[in-house]
Design a protein around this nucleic acid. Structure first.
Lengths: 183, 183
DNA sequence: GGTTGCATGTAAATGGTTACATGATTGT
DNA sequence: ACAATCATGTAACCATTTACATGCAACC
């Protein structure tokens, strides 16, 4: 069994209790979002199953108009199960990029559109970098979390830097769809 | 429609004809493997569907013991379809790492195992970096491909460098499962 | 008056992976 | 003798995403 949403929930809950909503938020806001993600449609069922299995317990907090807040936390068995799951050897890291796929065919893309594409992606990366650099929500700092945050910063900086210094390779001549002229 | 295996096949075939097997190989060997991937179980059906749709044609080359080599290439309509698919705006890049997930809980992992884990991952990254640095199979160099290769190199270098210089943060004290003592 | 944030959940659709099946040849 | 490379394909299984459903409060 690899590291699925269920295991991720187990892991995050091992740091403290949380609701499904908060787990989702931690992907979006915290420094773990750059290498982990899950949708509500995956989180809620995972939490449900974990409860059935007795690995997490929940405390329901009633609220006015909003649905009840279901605060989950690990049981003793949950902690054990998580500790066990830390033994699996981690699968390969994977980076997927539709953006780079497009750049592969930069010579088929009009110059101005290409520039726009790169500018946007760059803005996107800079935004994510900023999010990591200023940890607005100072998480309980474990050494792991600090390490991860640093790697994220290094990662985004490297890519931004590379794109800034090499985009001219793509934007140089307007190679506007010269290919397959003989089709 | 996002960039699925079908679109990837279309794109790769736009650079020249190939068999399903060769397409798969190009992920493993070439400089595109670090941000694209597909299994045989996805490639062959995609190629089949593309043929049905008249976007690719195939030339069957008979062979002795082996199955026939089916060499696919884009039709005029295939080229048009691909050109069209270059207009979609690329979804976000995604990096997924089970390794970093584990490191998040480095304080729950025995020091020696942790060191082993990091050493392995580092070796893995160095291997991929080498693959990019020496382009043993010199692909038809488009500006896009050179750019992508460079980004891959920058990417791996940054990560390797970061891990080498910061692993001590994780390996410092032996924080061997001190957590949840009060459970 | 519309969007965002809070908060939970379900069900269908998707787009894959994994495992299997086949088989000759070459290398270790 | 065993693994790997070449080469194609099918089918079951799978985890997730996407879209939907609901609804209040606060902000703009």
């Amino acid at each position: 069994m690899a590291i699925d949403v269920r295991t991720i929930c187990l892991g995050l809950l091992s740091r403290g209790s949380a609701t499904g909503y908060e787990i989702k938020k931690s992907f979006e806001e915290g420094p773990i979002g750059y290498f982990l993600e899950a949708s509500f449609g995956a989180i809620y069922p995972a939490l449900g199953r974990l409860t059935e299995e007795g690995l997490v317990g929940l405390k329901v907090e009633q609220q006015d108009g909003k649905p009840d807040r279901k605060v989950y936390s690990l049981t003793a068995r949950g902690h054990a199960a998580f500790e066990e799951s830390l033994r699996v050897d981690p699968g390969p890291d994977r980076f997927r990029s539709e953006f780079l796929f497009l750049l592969l065919f930069a010579d088929h893309i009009p110059k101005d559109h290409l520039r726009h594409l790169i500018d946007e992606r760059l803005a996107d990366y800079r935004c994510k970098l900023r999010l990591l650099e200023e940890p607005s929500i100072p998480m309980p700092n474990s050494p792991g979390l600090e390490f991860i945050r640093g790697q994220g910063i290094a990662f985004y900086r490297a890519i931004i830097d590379y794109i800034e210094h090499n985009r001219h390779l793509l934007e140089a001549q307007d190679a506007r769809v010269p290919a397959h002229a003989a089709e």
